[in-house]
């Protein structure tokens, strides 16, 4: 009885992460993107916490806390401040239309499901579906990075991709803390780097729109 509840709840947490990924993709406003990303990170934290409880693996609580504090609260707030302080254009500048991106996202979920489910026939059902969802989240994060022009939205896409990795990591039994720690730290470093990067770009070009940076490099688009 408990096994089914554990399965359903972790499944639901994974689905929430995926759904939040689509919400991130759908937003037309930068602040909205940040809020949706915060929601996704909180969902990841929830998934990790539930796995910690159901697998009786207390170190996963640490993972959940890291996800919640760093990615759910600190990162969105910091990015929010950057957007406000630098007075960035609040519209999401897309390279591919929102609708087309959503359709592509659906296609990626189908691909991930088709791919993971047959490959992992021998594994437990829970692991299989979590992996399928995690791969979808990773691919959607990647999609976010390549279909949005603004540097902030690219960072969000990158962190959303990391969320997918964390989801995959907590879904598998016995994954040591080291992995999640390294993921979290790499995220932190990437975040700091991107932050510095923003300021430097902003100082030099008065914009965070990558398009104008590209035109500065003298490239055709």
């Amino acid at each position: 009885m408990f096994a089914t509840i554990a399965y359903d709840l972790s499944h639901m947490a994974g689905a929430m992460v995926l759904l939040a990924g689509f919400v991130v993709l759908y937003q037309r406003r930068v602040l909205g993107v940040l809020r949706a990303f915060a929601a996704q990170s909180i969902a990841v934290a929830g998934a990790a916490a539930w796995q910690a409880y159901s697998q009786e693996a207390p170190h996963l609580y640490v993972t959940a806390a890291i996800a919640l504090l760093l990615k759910g609260i600190a990162a969105p707030i910091a990015l929010n401040r950057i957007v406000r302080r630098l007075d960035i254009h609040r519209t999401v500048e897309t390279a591919v239309g929102i609708g087309a991106t959503m359709l592509a996202g659906v296609g990626l979920v189908v691909l991930a499901t088709l791919l993971v489910l047959p490959v992992t026939v021998s594994s437990a059902a829970l692991t299989r579906e979590t992996l399928a969802i995690a791969l979808s989240v990773v691919l959607i994060g990647f999609l976010m990075m390549i279909t949005r022009r603004n540097a902030i939205t690219q960072v969000v896409g990158f962190m959303s991709l990391e969320n997918g990795l964390v989801l995959a990591a907590v879904g598998v039994k016995g994954m040591p803390l080291v992995v999640e720690m390294s993921v979290a730290f790499s995220l932190l470093i990437a975040f700091i780097l991107f932050g510095m990067f923003f300021f430097r770009i902003r100082e030099r070009f008065d914009t965070l729109d990558l398009q104008s940076i590209e035109s500065f490099r003298g490239e055709r688009r």
């Binding site: 990647f142 990075m145 690219q154």
Partner: peptide
């Protein structure tokens, strides 16, 4: 541009996944 390089990587990844699938 960075975005295009990422797109190339993404395209390669999705193509490989499609082949596996």
């Amino acid at each position: 541009s960075i975005r295009r390089y990422l797109s190339l990587m993404f395209g390669a990844l999705v193509t490989l996944l499609l082949i596996v699938a």
